[in-house]
């Protein structure tokens, strides 16, 4: 499985994502700098966490309008599996690949800790190795993870099985405790928790590893 990690100025989980992808897929991902219009054809695109453009203006707003994102949008729309974690999720919503927005945490504080969440959809290419309904523990680290969308959108997401993960307890004020969502086609996943930080017992667990294994399982 060939993958690419997109790097923006201020990304800071790009290395963590690359380490996880290499460890689990056995192949080093291509690191793609934001000014690169076209990058090699890959099976999987990851938008890592961090503070691209310092979170200035709005989290993810400037990255969503970068050169490389035009290409990412094109490929995601053509069906290439695309994962956005944390700042990557914010970029996906700003780029219009996923609905809704991520607002400042309800208590206004940055939060970094392990959280429990339920796998709501166990059939997607990102979650098929999990069993639907199980609780997994994966850390969050964000200031702006409070997912918001209007009620119709939320109902649609719920109805179409697009809610991938839901926090067991309120973490940041997110509507319906949503932690991660899929697009309609199921090839784009945005999530606030960091699966790349839970890939080995030394880091506290392996619940995040299963997500990458699901993708590998799907793509081979």
């Amino acid at each position: 499985m060939k993958s690419a990690v997109i790097v923006f100025p201020g990304s800071n989980c790009d290395r963590d994502m690359a380490v996880a992808l290499e460890k689990i897929t056995g192949q080093k991902p291509v690191m793609v700098w934001h000014q690169e219009y076209d990058f090699p054809e890959v099976d999987f695109i990851a938008l890592p966490g961090g503070f691209s453009y310092g979170d200035y203006l709005r989290c993810g707003a400037m990255s969503a309008r970068s050169h490389v994102m035009k290409e990412v949008i094109k490929r995601a729309n053509a069906g290439v599996p695309t994962l956005g974690v944390c700042n990557g999720f914010q970029i996906l919503t700003e780029a219009g690949l996923l609905p809704g927005a991520l607002m400042r945490n309800a208590n206004l504080h940055f939060v970094c800790r392990d959280v429990e969440m339920t796998v709501e959809n166990g059939d997607s290419m990102f979650t098929r190795n999990y069993e639907a309904g199980t609780t997994v523990t994966i850390p969050v680290a964000h200031h702006d993870g409070n997912y918001f969308a209007d009620a119709d959108t939320l109902d649609r997401l719920e109805g179409e099985g697009q809610v991938a993960f839901r926090y067991n307890d309120d973490v940041n004020g997110a509507q319906r405790r949503i932690a991660g969502i899929l697009n309609e086609k199921g090839n784009v996943l945005g999530m606030m928790p960091h699966p790349e930080r839970m890939i080995e017992p030394a880091l506290g667990g392996t619940d995040g590893r299963v997500l990458f294994e699901s993708v590998l399982h799907t793509l081979g």
Binding site: N12, D16, V19, F110, V111, C112, E196, A202, L203
Partner: peptide, 14 residues
Amino acid sequence: IWEQYDHMVMGDTI
């Protein structure tokens, strides 16, 4: 205090 610090980024906090 420390929940407001990202203490895990870089993937090596043991």
